[in-house]
């Protein structure tokens, strides 16, 4: 049997790795898109963690 540089197995593994790579890329893009969408709609980005800080304290009533 001749020594083939590219075994069928390599091709299949390349396809699998490419699939995983593209899936991860798509996931990163999705999380980025979600972040942008959430910031656009003005969702609360910070929840109360019981330590006072300016961004979560209620605004002073104005006269």
């Amino acid at each position: 049997m001749a020594i083939a540089k590219e075994h069928e197995m390599h091709k299949r593994r390349f396809n699998r790795n490419m699939g995983v790579g593209l899936t991860l890329l798509a996931f990163v893009a999705l999380v980025y898109g979600l972040t942008v969408a959430k910031m656009q709609t003005g969702d609360m980005m910070e929840a109360n963690d019981h330590s006072p800080r300016v961004s979560v304290t209620p605004a002073e009533p104005t006269e």
Partner: peptide, 11 residues
């Protein structure tokens, strides 16, 4: 919901 949020949620 925002379309991106809807799409991600369904996914």
């Amino acid at each position: 919901v925002h379309p991106v949020v809807g799409f991600a949620s369904i996914l």
